[in-house]
Computed example of a mutant assay.
Amino acid sequence: MIEVYSWPTPNGHKVHIMLEECGLPYRVIPVDIGSGAQFEAAFLAISPNNKIPAITDSEGPDGRPIHLFESGAILLYLAGKTGKFLPADTAGKYEVLQWLMFQMGSVGPMLGQAHHFRIYASEKIDYAIERYSQEAQRLYGVMNKRLAASRYLGGPAYSIADMAIFPWLRSWKNQGVQLSEFPHLKGWFDEIAARPAVQRGLGVLEEQRRPLLDDKARETLFGKSQYRRR
């Protein structure tokens, strides 16, 4: 059984979707990031960077338990465990991996900054809003161009690259983007959104989702609590 320590965020949804697509049995353990549950010792023992998601697989390599943090690493582990959603051939595998790294290095961090300065920051800084909104536009353009030439981001087949990127684009309005301006990307987005396993994955912990705009949540996520040594 896989235990998933998670919350309904884009990074959490990546792993929820992969588990649903693979059909693996799993149990979700909520980690309420707005209340500070990510700083509890039990969670830090599994995820030392105090970020969700993390997993424990009681049936890991050689039948031994394994703990993993970082959503990209978890996707790769689940792909390896099941033999699904990552090509077996070397060229195909690296075509997918480059787009997975694109998500980890660009889409997640840059769109996350766009969310922060446009929505969450208590002080509205025009320079930061413009910088990250423009970077969001640029990244959407990169993906749109790719999808003009490829059915999926990682190549001809649906893969962990698509699962990693899709949840981040659900909040395109908050990123200062009009999805309709990127027709190839929009077509891909609509196709992924219609997949039953994706819909189930997005429903995980959805009843616990709430706006993270109160003072306590701001302090927990963006204040001194985030930077305290543990």
Rank of each mutant, 00 (worst) to 15 (best):
Y5L: 11
Y5S: 01
S6C: 13
S6Q: 05
T9V: 11
T9L: 13
T9K: 06
T9A: 03
T9C: 08
G12H: 01
G12W: 00
H13L: 09
V15S: 02
I17K: 03
I17T: 02
I17D: 01
M18I: 06
M18A: 15
M18D: 05
L19M: 12
L19Q: 01
E20H: 09
E20D: 05
E20Q: 12
E20C: 00
E21H: 09
E21Q: 12
C22D: 09
G23P: 10
G23Q: 10
L24C: 10
L24T: 08
P25N: 12
P25A: 09
Y26D: 07
R27Q: 13
R27W: 01
V28E: 08
V28Q: 04
V28S: 01
I29V: 09
P30Q: 04
P30H: 02
V31L: 02
V31S: 04
V31N: 04
V31K: 02
V31E: 05
D32T: 06
D32V: 04
I33E: 03
G34E: 12
G34V: 00
S35H: 09
G36R: 12
G36S: 12
A37H: 11
A37F: 09
Q38F: 07
F39R: 06
F39E: 06
E40G: 14
E40T: 11
A42G: 13
F43K: 04
F43M: 10
A45T: 14
A45I: 11
I46Y: 11
S47V: 09
S47Q: 07
S47I: 12
P48D: 13
P48T: 12
K51M: 14
P53R: 07
A54N: 05
S58D: 12
S58F: 11
S58W: 10
